[in-house]
């Protein structure tokens, strides 16, 4: 960080002032941002969420002329970062990387989180989404979801499915799948997605509905077989893999997303300005290319369509949580 930090700050400073000089007349409604903006990430450095935050932070730094700085506050699947945002002034200078956890299921699962996404946050902009994918060990004698279900019915209680922790998206999707397909498989939790993937490659665990970003490399190497993606449509980088809906499980329409959210009472002009900048990133070829590198695609969703999207996904999550053996709190 030291040297490059310096250089980067200098470069940003210069570009920022140039941009500010040329662009300021167009954006006269609010002078936001006049000082650096913090983007809170509820995960440690290096994961998909962190990288997504850094991509959008870099872009906003260039287009809005102030440094957007990523601050990692890991803990309780993002709940700690979200709660921290509540303690900060609602001025748009503390944003949160909003994802499925912070915006949908933490409130349903964590009894002691004080952050309620509907009550406490407002969308600044949606920018990326990714899919989950049903993967199996390459030596498992199945090549489709139907064959996997048939195998599991033939050997009830013998197959294992992995997850990166109880109550996480991989576990809940797996549990929901076993419920929908009426199969009896044993859940094996792991500490991280990478550990789970290793165990599936080694053949000790049989299948999982993993995050695409984690298992993409193993799929393209042939170490894992991908049977279906949970996205509503086929995924560009895996064109031969059917969707869960095609495989007969339309209920498993699962989208994990990346967004920036601000505190609820933030000035609408500030949200508007952020939204315009984020929408421009989503529409740009660089945005598509950069998001592609972290296993995501641009997600163009207007603030007007956001509540409906959250409601639909919320219903799916509620069903998954029930399948996972708990009662949603909300």
């Amino acid at each position: 960080m030291k040297l490059t930090g310096y250089i980067r700050k200098a470069v940003w400073g210069v570009t920022a002032s140039l941009i500010a000089m040329t662009a300021s007349p167009l954006l006269a409604e609010t002078d936001y941002p006049t000082r650096p903006v913090t983007i809170l990430v509820g995960a440690g450095p290096g994961g998909g969420n962190d990288l997504a935050a850094r991509l959008i932070a870099d872009d906003l730094t260039k287009t809005l002329g102030q440094a957007f700085v990523v601050e990692n506050r890991p803990g309780a699947s993002g709940a700690r970062a979200a709660e921290y945002m509540m303690t900060q002034p609602a001025d748009g200078y503390t944003l949160l990387l909003g994802n499925t956890a912070t915006q949908i299921y933490n409130a349903m699962l964590l009894a002691d989180t004080t952050f309620d996404p509907d009550r406490d946050s407002a969308l600044a902009g949606m920018f990326g989404k990714s899919s989950n994918v049903l993967v199996v060990n390459k030596d498992l004698p199945v090549n489709s979801v139907a064959e996997l279900v048939a195998l599991a019915k033939e050997k009830p209680g013998e197959l294992n499915y992995g997850s990166a922790g109880v109550g996480g998206s991989i576990h809940l999707a797996g549990a929901y799948f076993t419920q929908l397909a009426e199969i009896d498989a044993v859940h094996v939790p792991f500490k991280s997605g990478a550990e789970m993937m290793t165990d599936i490659i080694a053949g000790n665990t049989d299948f999982a509905i993993d995050n695409l970003a984690t298992s993409f490399s193993a799929i393209s190497n042939g170490d894992l077989k991908a049977l279906a993606v949970t996205n509503a449509t086929r995924w560009d980088s895996l064109p031969d893999v059917p969707t869960m809906a095609e495989a007969g499980y339309p209920q498993l329409d699962l989208t994990s997303f990346y967004s920036l959210v601000a505190a609820k009472d933030t000035d609408p002009a500030v949200l508007d300005k952020l939204n315009t900048a984020i929408a421009a990133y989503v529409a740009s070829p660089e945005g598509a290319e950069q998001l592609g590198r972290i296993g995501a695609v641009p997600f163009d969703l207007s603030p007007a369509d956001y509540p409906a999207f959250i409601t639909t996904q919320g219903e799916i999550w509620r069903a998954m949580i029930v399948a996972g053996g708990t009662t949603p709190l909300k």
Binding site: G44, L51, A194, M197, T198, S217, A218, D223, R293
Partner: peptide, 27 residues
Amino acid sequence: TLGIPSNPMMALFIAALILQGIVPGPR
């Protein structure tokens, strides 16, 4: 060669490789 990280740092290297369009694996 396997895309398996032994610590958070190695997970970052995998992210770095993927950002570069290189998929860790036996090949």
